[in-house]
């Protein structure tokens, strides 16, 4: 997919990503009055390392590191195209989530369909008191009544633009680029457009 992406500009660099995740960690603590009962769950692929970073920042501030899980949404998607998709990583919820506050972490919030799928998956593990959403980039164009509680950067985009998040753990470097897909005639915007 990388060859379909022509980057136009870097909208966040490594330092800005670090500041954004640090600020999100503070906001999570402020909103929830501490780290008790928090569970962070990253959406594969890039939501998982972002969730770990937020957990580390929470530990640095609060002295408690909330458990971090991961969720893969392949079996919950409603926008999977014509071929079935294999999971990109394991679903691991390390602790019981009954009564917990689960913070779902993803790299880009776009249509909201990935988040809907992730919430469905998480609810198969228990009944959290609350589910909150943290994203590094909110690029708009929601198709479902979903909003983020914590946003690294609001980024107005056109539908035919592509926002690509790179994280050190997956891509070897941190950064967020905006660009265009040279040609994608007739294809509905989906998660692949957000994160190739």
């Amino acid at each position: 997919m990388a060859e379909q992406f022509a980057p136009k500009a870097e909208v966040l660099d490594a330092d800005e990503i670090r500041r954004a995740t640090t600020r999100i960690a503070h906001e999570v603590l402020e909103r929830n009055k501490g780290a008790d009962g928090l569970v962070l769950v990253g959406i594969h692929t890039r939501g998982v390392p972002l969730a770990r970073r937020i957990a580390t920042s929470i530990r640095d501030v609060e002295g408690i590191e909330p458990p971090v899980g991961s969720v893969d949404i392949a079996f919950y998607r409603d926008d999977i195209g014509t071929k079935p998709r294999a999971p990109t990583g394991p679903t691991e919820i390390p602790v019981g989530i009954d009564g917990a506050t689960v913070v779902v972490v993803d790299d880009v919030l776009y249509t909201g369909r990935s988040v809907r799928a992730a919430m469905d998956a998480i609810c198969d593990f228990g009944r959290p008191t609350a589910i909150q959403l943290a994203v590094l980039v909110d690029r708009g164009h929601r198709e479902l009544p979903i909003r983020a509680d914590y946003v690294g950067k609001n980024l107005p985009t056109a539908r035919d633009e592509v926002v690509k998040v790179r994280v050190l753990e997956v891509d070897g470097a941190d950064g967020v680029d905006i660009g265009t897909r040279p040609h994608a005639p007739g294809s509905a915007p989906d998660r692949e457009a957000a994160t190739p």
Binding site: A74, F75, Y76, D120, A121, D124, F125, G126
Partner: peptide, 9 residues
């Protein structure tokens, strides 16, 4: 192994 061992795929 999940509490609800079922997915909507």
């Amino acid at each position: 192994r999940r509490p609800i061992p079922k997915v909507p795929a």
